[in-house]
């Protein structure tokens, strides 16, 4: 099957109860090209209009920063991209457990082995990870971790939030893609496999027609290093292929939030997010 061309329109809207005078924001919504995907066009627009500033952050993500200084009660951020995606790549089977335990390797990927606020060390889960890896090679262990997470968590939006850590999600036994990914990362790092968080978009159905616009979603999956980096979608048990568009990688969600910002005052705000995805070819 040949590569797909997908248009993504990611709209985020805030409505404030009282006018907000100052607001500073950063959007991480711009996909980057690599061996697997080719970005044809991408832009981030805001309403009210702003003068945007772009830079590449520590993780290599393209950041669009903008600020507002006139009173406003609504803010909309629209990221539009057209991306060509490719067929899935097979997992990289280059490293054994001994290779992964090597001091040089562990130091090289130190950041992707460290525990963070979202992905915190836990003795019980460490034990589960040790059980899981027994008798498997690293690649199999990644897939095993994914299916273990799917056994443990029920996909259910609304119970967990963006601040929920892997451990909290595991205790509530529910979660969304973010929680699935954090829990998988936790297991992989307990096993000693360097693993990172990937944020992006997923076209929901395999059988989407060309020119059809569907309600897509912001999505997340993992990448593991087993001699080389490769992606895996633990939420849906999917290889990373035509339907996945990646935007940013980091240690956990905190490194890759699609939109973060602050505004002056204490007005309460409501949030509205939609992702429209159209398969163009």
């Amino acid at each position: 099957m040949a590569g797909w061309r997908i248009r993504i329109v990611h709209e985020t809207g805030y409505t404030y109860e009282s006018p907000v005078v100052e607001s500073y924001n950063e959007a991480r919504m711009t996909p980057r090209s690599d061996a697997r995907q080719n970005v044809i066009a991408s832009r981030v627009e805001t309403s009210p209009a702003t003068r945007a500033y772009r830079y590449t952050d520590y993780w290599g993500t393209l950041v669009t920063a903008f600020d507002l200084h006139a009173p406003h009660t609504e803010l909309a951020v629209t990221a539009t991209s057209v991306v060509e995606t490719a067929d899935p790549l097979p997992p990289v089977r280059g490293a054994t457990w001994e290779d992964l335990a090597d001091e040089d390797v562990r130091d090289r990927f130190a950041e992707m082995l460290e525990f963070t606020g979202y992905v915190g060390h836990d003795p019980e889960l460490a034990e589960a990870a040790a059980d899981l890896r027994r008798g498997l090679d690293p690649v199999e262990a990644v897939l095993a971790a994914g299916s273990w997470v799917r056994e443990q968590l029920t996909y259910q939006p609304g119970v967990t939030g963006v601040q929920t850590s892997a451990l909290e999600a595991w205790h509530t036994r529910t979660g969304v893609c973010q929680d699935f990914v954090h829990l998988t990362l936790l297991l992989l790092r307990e096993m000693g496999i360097p693993a990172r968080y990937v944020s992006g978009y997923l076209l929901p159905r395999e059988d989407t027609d060309v020119r059809e616009t569907v309600q897509g979603e912001s999505h997340a999956w993992v990448e593991a290093w087993t001699g080389g980096w490769w992606g895996y979608d633990p939420t849906n048990d999917l290889e990373i292929g035509n339907r996945h568009v990646w935007v940013a990688v980091g240690r956990d969600y905190a490194d890759v939030p699609p939109l973060k910002g602050i505004f002056s005052g204490q007005a309460s705000s409501t949030l509205n997010v939609s992702v429209d995805m159209t398969r163009l070819a």
């Binding site: 985020t12 805030y14 100052e22 939030g161 963006v162 601040q163 912001s218 939030p257 699609p258 939109l259 973060k260 910002g261 602050i262 505004f263 002056s264 005052g265 204490q266 007005a267 705000s269 949030l271 997010v273």
Partner: peptide, 10 residues
């Protein structure tokens, strides 16, 4: 002093 609010995002 400006008090800042960081709204939740998805």
């Amino acid at each position: 002093w400006v008090a800042w609010t960081a709204p939740e995002v998805v």
